[in-house]
Nucleic acid binder design. Structure first.
Lengths: 342, 342
DNA sequence: GTGAAAGCGCTAACAC
DNA sequence: GTGTTAGCGCTTTCAC
């Protein structure tokens, strides 16, 4: 790095004996520059260790090559995986990232965020925070007014909105069907907080699998946690109490399943003989639980990657031809992993 | 949000019947505007739903209120926690974030990154990736040439560089001393990859505690993993083999400790009677392992928060008075949490 | 208190 | 091929 970044296009032009525009042309790889001029300019750039000022470029181009990313609960397993996919793919495709984390999962205070991204001339936005309660309500009012592309992750299909999500319903259904095919008749469920769309989908998959196989569903057969291991423990104790004949359980995520394993052990229940357990998410650690946990693996990294790829394609279309982009609903299938717990 | 973000300071000025400068003054809360002019301008801004263009502001102010953040291994537990602390504190102090993730932990290809941040006029940089192998080597050459403040996380003290880190050495030492005081005489260690500074520090704490208490240390007493649960399992099996009298073990992180618990159970070893186990990190799940895991909790969120606070103070000093800022070495003490495994 | 002019570093539109 | 002239949207001097 040169001592100071103050070298501008002007310095290069002067030293190379050309106009600033010519330098700009070289910078942008335009073809209408003679080979030798280009060579000379490039040489001077190298000598001066010239680095173009991206802010000035953004301002005059009206394009920043920056995406806004909205995340929430970064300290949890899922969101950080997704963000990792986003950063990698963005890097790959030549985009930088402006990052904002919501103060809480169900924050509805989104307008300032949108203004902020817009003010920084983000070319597009990835909304990588989950749908909870009415935290998508703003969409109906605000969405039509936003003039930059937005991709949403993990939410219910909605008209005109591009969404990338894991198919939670099918994943859950497959897990429960596996339990049914293994001969279990009394399959309970610990749901995540039902204010979350994902939690409702997973619970829906559980219900549907049971119903389709002629096994009834009722209130005794499930309880609700808040995704944390601690809440899972409480929910499990409650469930064992009200559904004593339970011989298998589908748990809303791996963390809650972890404490089901711990509590079962403490109660002297053998897994999977007395109680089969399947989780959801496929955390790497779940393979090393006692016993190793069957789970529904969802590729959250890929979720982020797809969102970025989609956004790039939308922005570039948008930019090049100013045409309206077709909204898409993109679904990723999770994968059932059977281990010792089932 | 207004339909288009095209409203500029000029539109406001025109509609309010003042000059653009006056609008700018109102925008920046300058005092040299009459009360009624200010009121009128503000009113017009509201009517027009005017939002200042941050890119233009950055360009003319030479200050962006943006920090660059370099992270690595976002999908792992630690880095995402730290990033969460960074996002929260930055938001609190009015700074936005430009995010980059290294392609690998030990990437040494940092110059383009620094150029990129600089090109986007970041006011400062937080280097939230761990010190591994020679991935800090560039510092000696490049650091003196960088003219924006950088704060590093998790690395060895170094002249002229501001660093915020957990005291891994003391945390490890305290854990091992706890084992010693509990009467254990044969305390093994599974280290993280010793190319990592943190892993070396933790191993150093283990060695020092043993040595200070007159217990010898030799090569039979430790093995090395790569932080993952899978590697922990392999390392543990190897260690049991070569150090059969081991009655306690200090493991480099919680993930590897998890598979120690699993393997011990499979071998029929009782924890903590046959083998006491202590991990490092304090992941929330560790409380729900079988049995619940004793561990050394480090507050990585706080690490990020402190880094941002420090960076803000450095940039603002830097900006206001152009004076050189004293480098600091800031250390956070981790906390020993004793649970059933020890 | 307020306005005019210049400039931040770059690109776009049009000349030549 | 290359240069000239205008901007992008804002802030900063420096007048008045």
């Amino acid at each position: 790095m040169a001592k100071t970044g103050k070298t501008t296009i002007y310095d290069v032009a002067e030293k190379a004996g050309v106009s600033r525009q010519t330098v700009s042309r070289v910078l942008n790889n335009r073809q209408d520059v003679s080979v030798e001029t280009r060579k000379r300019v490039k040489q001077v750039m190298a000598e001066l260790n010239y680095q173009p000022n991206a802010v000035a470029q953004s301002l005059s181009r009206h394009k920043s090559y920056l995406f806004g990313v909205v995340t929430a609960g970064l300290k949890y397993f899922g969101p950080s995986r997704t963000l990792s996919g986003i950063t990698n793919k963005a890097e790959e495709l030549g985009y930088g990232l402006l990052l904002k984390e919501l103060e809480s999962f169900n924050s509805t205070n989104v307008i300032p965020l949108l203004h902020w991204f817009k003010s920084h001339q983000a070319d597009g936005i990835i909304w990588a925070a989950p749908e909870i309660e009415d935290n998508r309500k703003w969409l109906t009012d605000v969405f039509p007014l936003i003039d930059i592309p937005i991709i949403f992750l993990t939410m219910e299909e909605q008209k005109d909105v591009t969404i990338v999500t894991t198919d939670n319903f099918s994943g859950a259904k497959a897990a429960v069907e596996h339990l049914i095919h293994s001969g279990h008749k009394h399959i309970g469920h610990i749901a995540g907080p039902l204010s979350w769309w994902e939690a409702r989908q997973r619970k829906g998959g559980w219900e549907t699998a049971l119903t389709e196989h002629g096994l009834g569903v009722n209130e005794r057969m499930w309880t609700q946690g808040n995704w944390s291991s601690k809440s899972g423990k409480i929910a499990f104790l409650e469930l064992v109490e009200k559904y004593p004949e339970m011989d298998a359980i589908f748990v809303g995520n791996d963390q809650m399943a972890l404490s089901v394993l711990q509590s079962s052990l403490e109660m002297g229940k053998k897994i999977p003989q007395d109680l089969a357990v399947i989780g959801f998410d496929g955390m790497p650690e779940s393979e090393f639980y006692c016993p190793s946990l069957s789970t529904v693996y969802q590729n959250q990294d890929e979720l982020g990657r797809i969102a970025v790829a989609e956004l790039v394609s939308q922005t570039e279309e948008n930019y090049l031809e100013n045409k309206i982009v077709e909204p898409k609903y993109i679904t990723i299938q999770p994968e059932l992993i059977i281990r010792q717990s089932s």
